[in-house]
């Protein structure tokens, strides 16, 4: 323990005591919860038919509570705005990727893209979905970035931004169109629900993947109008 740490000993003891109280209290609170609680599983199951997908989690995410997901895509995009607004950080030293990394990426990236596609598709009826797929896509992007690949400057302007906002954009457009068609916000007609969800998920997967990769890169691409 450092000198400073010793000086702070009474404080840390107090802290530990407080945290102990907190843990105990929270633990007690958790344990007193009713041991049987179906939560919302029943209504979810009851409405699964109308939701357009058969995976309940996806149904909740993109139908029952799709509004949360919409905002959450906003959060992700916002984080990107934020990272880009923090003026460019000095670039990490560019070094040519070693042979292992290079090989691995050549091998993995196509597979990762494929896996992402599968996850997106599978999300409708089994665990999976846009976020999972997007993450895998992002992993591919990260690998590429690590090998020194950068987006061509021709695409780093509006096209890049377009693809970054695609998820949110499609979501919003769908919502607006649905409203204009006389429904409520994100009220999918049951017959189109599955297709719409897939559309949204596809756009979201692309955006999530690109956004996460862009967040990894940190700095904003300099070029482009």
């Amino acid at each position: 323990m450092t000198e400073r740490g010793k000086k702070q000993l009474p404080f840390r003891l107090l802290l530990v005591a407080l945290l102990f109280v907190l843990t105990a209290g929270l633990g007690y609170a958790v344990l007193t919860l009713p041991s049987q609680a179906p939560g919302l599983s029943n209504p979810v199951v009851a409405n699964l038919e109308a939701s357009g997908v058969s995976n309940p989690v996806t149904a909740v995410l993109l139908n029952f509570r799709a509004y949360d997901t919409l905002l959450e895509l906003g959060v992700l995009l916002l984080a990107l705005f934020g990272v880009w607004s923090l003026a460019a950080v000095p670039e990490c030293r560019e070094s040519p990727p070693g042979p292992v990394l290079d090989g691995l990426s050549r091998l993995l990236v196509p597979w990762l893209i494929l896996v992402a596609g599968y996850l997106l598709w599978a999300g409708a009826h089994a665990p999976g979905g846009a976020f999972q797929a997007g993450s895998v896509l992002a992993a591919a992007g990260v690998l590429l970035l690590l090998t020194g690949w950068r987006l061509d400057t021709r695409f780093s302007g509006l096209p890049l931004r377009m693809s970054l906002v695609a998820g949110l954009g499609v979501f919003v457009v769908v919502a607006v169109v649905l409203i204009l068609m006389g429904g409520r916000l994100l009220e999918y007609p049951p017959s189109f629900a599955g297709a719409l969800i897939l559309l949204i998920e596809a756009a979201a997967t692309l955006s999530i993947g690109m956004t996460l990769a862009a967040l990894f890169l940190g700095a904003r691409p300099e070029a482009g109008p």
């Binding site: 979810v44 409405n47 916000l185």
Partner: peptide
């Protein structure tokens, strides 16, 4: 306003 037309416990 029930988002998605689901109403309170299930939807938002």
């Amino acid at each position: 306003y029930a988002v998605g037309g689901w109403g309170a416990p299930l939807g938002i």
